[in-house]
Amino acid sequence: MGTPQGEPSLYTVEIDGDTFEDCPALRVHYAYGPPLLGEGRVEIRGITVTQPPATGDDDQDQAPDRGLDEVAVRQVTAAWRRIEAWLREHAPASYGSLKAGASVEEIAALEAALGLRIPADLKALWSLHAGVRDVRGAGFLLDNRALMDLDAVVAFYRMQMMFQQRSRSDEDPTWRPSWIPFCSYGVDDRSSGLYLDSTTGELGYFSRYAEHWAEYASLTVYLEEFADALEAPVLVTGARPGLAGGALVWGPPNYPDPDHPWVEYTG
């Protein structure tokens, strides 16, 4: 499809009037043209695997495609490294909140506790950092959310599944078994956040009021938008990155901290 530029998962291709068509089994997410790219150029930012329709009542879950998993791992790792490098340089308080990565054994134990296979992209994220400590600056993800640790993931998932079983509503479920929460409003505040749908790869929003909707096409898209906002803040249209006492805060904040005034980061 093109010539590799840097990371093996990132390609730049010339557009010569030919139709750009996605493979039927994949959903390709790409950026096109100015201001970040040259005229007539496109960068593939992420690839989401679409689920084929069932062919029978007895179909079982298909085995993951190892090649696609490797692509997802590379993409998530590359995007997160960009974020981490920015935090290290500009927001030491937020960088210092990061916990160590989870081991293979810890992630396997999480899969057993949830009773489902964790997608490769989410495994990659947690293997880099399995949550944050409850310190100032920990809520540095987009919209000032915090990365959940594995114990919090299990506890919240089980609670949501219990609520779903009690409601017995299949038409408008409060929670689906395939939804894996990974970030929340605060380190100890689960009133809202994001989950990854292990069936579709999409990221969705949840709240305490049983609200839920799709927000991002994949974890890769989410992390790359995050990294792009830090590296090119002039292009941000929503909440803007800023610094407050060495922490990354998306703002302007609704409730400014007088001890740590917010200063917009402009690059």
Rank of each mutant, 00 (worst) to 15 (best):
M1H: 12
P4E: 06
Q5R: 08
E7D: 13
S9H: 15
L10R: 14
L10T: 08
Y11D: 09
E14C: 05
G17N: 08
G17A: 04
F20D: 11
P24S: 10
G33E: 07
G33T: 01
P35H: 03
L36F: 06
L36D: 14
L37F: 13
L37S: 08
G40E: 13
V42P: 02
E43I: 04
I44E: 06
I44C: 08
T50M: 13
T50L: 15
P52L: 07
T55E: 14
G56T: 06
G56H: 09
D59P: 09
D59Y: 01
Q60D: 10
A63W: 04
D65W: 00
D69L: 01
A72V: 01
A72N: 12
V73H: 04
R74L: 14
T77K: 06
A79F: 03
A79S: 15
W80E: 07
W80S: 06
R81F: 05
R82V: 02
E84V: 04
A85T: 13
P92E: 08
P92N: 09
A93K: 12
Y95Q: 10
S97E: 11
L98T: 07
A100V: 05
A102M: 09
A102P: 10
E106C: 02
L110Q: 02
A113C: 07
L114K: 11
G115A: 02
R117N: 14
R117M: 12
A120P: 12
D121P: 14
L122V: 03
L125D: 10
W126Y: 15
H129V: 00
D134Y: 04
R136V: 05
G137I: 02
G139W: 03
F140E: 10
L142Q: 15
D143F: 01
A146P: 12
A146G: 11
A146C: 15
A155T: 12
Y157E: 04
M159W: 11
M161C: 07
Q164T: 07
Q164N: 12
R166G: 15
T174E: 10
W175K: 05
R176V: 06
R176P: 05
P177Y: 00
I180Q: 06
F182Y: 13
C183L: 09
C183D: 15
G186C: 10
D188E: 10
S191E: 10
L194G: 11
Y195C: 08
S198M: 02
T199E: 15
G201W: 02
L203D: 11
R208D: 13
Y209A: 14
H212E: 05
H212W: 01
A217K: 03
T220I: 00
T220S: 14
L223H: 05
E225C: 09
D228N: 06
A232G: 00
P233G: 09
V234I: 00
L235S: 08
V236S: 09
T237G: 13
A239D: 14
R240I: 00
R240V: 05
R240E: 14
G242I: 07
L243K: 00
G245N: 12
A247N: 04
P253W: 04
N254K: 11
Y255F: 02
P258K: 02
G267V: 01
G267Y: 00
